[in-house]
Computed example of a mutant assay.
Amino acid sequence: MRFNGKTVVVTGAASGIGRATALAFSGEGAIVYAADIDDAGLAATAAASNGTIVTARCDVTRTEDIKALMDRAAAETGGIDCVFNNAGAGGDRAAIDEIEPEGWDRTMDLLLRSVAFGIRYAVPHMIGRKGASFVNTSSVAAIGPGYSPTAYAVAKAGVLHLTKVGAADLAKHQIRVNAVQPGFINTNIFTSAMGMPEDLELQAKGAIAAMSKQAQPIARGGQADDIANAVLFLASEAASFMTGTSLLVDGGITIGPRHSWDPEIPGLFDALQKMADGGKAA
């Protein structure tokens, strides 16, 4: 019960990583304020908990909603101990030579601006709380291209830098700020953005799981609980000497191209060595 009596705010808590993390926090004694725009999903999250989950409708693209969420959690419990800034979606899928300003701004508002103001409006309620911390959801997409649409990747890279500068800004209050970087996690974050019907979403999740087995050293699809476990660690006393950093929870997908970890796949230097050995034999 690492979080017994603590107040925790989780955004994007109606499904996926947010839902799993809200359930994990509540299961370890936290009073969790689970926020989302999906009322039915929030109700399902609360019903699945064996602890305390208070649901709150919050559109994180609206700063007034974020402030109201933080103010409510603090007013009802006396303060806030942890905020998991997690709400998000796939964002605009256009390439940089095709994206329109509205799509770019909408993606940044949802994925980056929301994190900034999640921090901004929670801090007044966290000052003086022992062990207070933020955990922000970034992504492997922050590391380089090929993992997500362009605007999403740029926003998630911004979350990483915001985590660092936020940690520096809030050190004077003894508030820690860290991030988690999920890899391919079997949630509906991108399929929902594409408007897929439910039966196709299930097929897509199966395809992601199958692809993950081939694309990374850990041969299984990532699950929301894998990220929840990392978030709870970062928020716990066990991580009290960590701030301004991030945890990659990606099954090893960012280690490098397949030949870097699969001995069955020859890499460039293997091919060159074979050429050299062949030349010597001749």
Rank of each mutant, 00 (worst) to 15 (best):
F3H: 00
N4K: 15
T11C: 01
G12L: 06
A13P: 12
A14C: 05
G16S: 02
T21A: 10
G27L: 03
G27D: 03
E28C: 09
G29T: 04
A30S: 10
A30V: 06
V32Y: 11
A35V: 03
A35G: 02
D36L: 02
A40Q: 05
A40T: 04
A40L: 01
G41Q: 05
A48I: 02
S49K: 07
G51F: 13
G51Y: 10
G51E: 12
A56P: 00
R57D: 02
C58G: 02
C58M: 02
C58S: 09
R62W: 03
E64N: 09
E64D: 15
A73D: 05
A74K: 03
T77C: 11
G79H: 09
D81N: 15
D81I: 07
C82R: 11
C82A: 15
A89D: 11
A95V: 05
I96W: 14
E98W: 04
I99D: 03
D105V: 00
T107L: 04
S114L: 04
R120N: 10
G131F: 13
G131H: 13
T137C: 11
S138P: 09
V140H: 11
V140S: 07
A141C: 12
A141M: 08
P145Y: 09
G146D: 07
T150Q: 10
T150F: 14
Y152I: 00
K156E: 06
V159N: 00
L162G: 10
V165N: 12
V165L: 09
A167G: 15
L170H: 14
L170E: 08
A171V: 11
K172Y: 10
N178Q: 08
F184E: 00
N186Y: 03
N186W: 04
M194S: 15
M196G: 01
M196Y: 15
D199F: 10
A204Q: 14
A204N: 13
K205L: 15
A207D: 13
Q216R: 14
R220E: 14
R220P: 06
Q223K: 14
Q223M: 14
I227F: 13
S236C: 02
E237D: 15
A238I: 02
A239G: 04
T243P: 13
L248G: 05
G252C: 11
T254H: 06
R258G: 10
H259M: 01
H259T: 00
G267Q: 07
L268S: 10
F269Q: 08
M275E: 11
D277V: 06
A281P: 06
